[in-house]
Design a protein around this nucleic acid. Structure first.
Lengths: 164, 164
DNA sequence: CAATATAAGTTGCGAATCACAATTTATATT
DNA sequence: AATATAAATTGTGATTCGCAACTTATATTG
């Protein structure tokens, strides 16, 4: 269906992620799924999406292994759509987008807060951290060629790293 | 231009973020900008995007304060497009998407690695962390109503939190 | 100054995608 | 057998996309 689109890059994971999640409604369907929505008519009511678009998006998400389609045993008319592990792994990306939207779009606090159930404290803002968990400022970020990784030398990082 | 689209929710930051970044090419333009691309023809060559679409997307990104448009002083034909602070704040979301694409799309290592320039170690995977920086497993996440936040009681979290 | 070159942006057109409604298929209920 | 329900498909018009050619504004060259 979407094979007419450009191969884009293939050297970066971003175009790959956008091939599925870059389409309209994909992330909102995912959010509804995280909310516990699991059936066609539920998605329909929760999102206000057109039927054919919803059917198309769900099929696409299933094709890409982000959601699983399982007709219910007791009533095989009903089809349950559930997140796979691959789909669940999109939660950080979804939260990062959501937090960004909250920060810059009217500053709504967005009532249900995601908390750590062990101490009931809200989670930290999704951000960039060093290997030890320490937050990194944007000015401390560099792009380094993979071949130069293991070297313990001091000035290993050039001044003009590029993002691929 | 896009006012015919649904208001979607307005209670969640996600639809707000998707209004701009959910359109095709938006994230790829952003990636190019992080790469140092800053002029119209550069974007054109780097992305393989159509001229009119690029002009439209850049104008939209500028309208939303994600990029800034500044004609150069020495040659006013040339227009420099640069990321604003708001645009820069999309880096965590972009990296989360990119890492997800890398993880599930052929497992390409994606050569230029983002490192902390202080110790030249690759950054940690973008993930969900507690307020103190400790990573949280998906099973330890709960959604809590904002009004119940300050309470130091033990079982403050119900068993069926929902994402809004 | 006139002619040409360059950067950014616009317009026109066919193809793909979108939203809305009505219809179809398969299964369940009465 | 008749009706109801869940999921998905089809049909139609509007919107958006991608490609190419054109326009506008500024710079450069003879």
């Amino acid at each position: 269906m979407s094979k007419l689109r450009e191969p884009l890059d293939a050297e970066c994971g971003l175009p790959l992620a956008l091939e599925v999640m870059g389409e309209r409604w994909s992330f909102l369907i995912l959010r509804a799924a995280f909310n516990g929505i699991g059936h066609f008519e539920e998605f329909l009511g929760a999102l206000g999406i057109a039927r054919n678009i919803l059917a198309n998006r769900l099929a696409r998400l299933v094709d890409h292994g982000i959601m699983a389609r399982t007709p219910q045993a007791d009533d095989r008319r009903r089809v349950a759509y559930t997140l796979t592990a691959k789909g669940f792994d999109l939660l950080p990306a979804m939260l990062a987008l959501r937090q960004w939207g909250e920060k810059y779009g009217l500053g709504v606090p967005s009532n249900p807060v995601l908390v750590d159930s062990r101490d009931c404290q809200p989670i930290a803002a999704i951000g960039i951290r060093a290997h030890d968990g320490r937050p990194i400022a944007y000015t401390d970020l560099q792009w380094l060629d993979r071949t130069q990784l293991g070297q313990a030398g001091a000035s290993c990082c050039g001044p003009d790293g590029k993002i691929d």
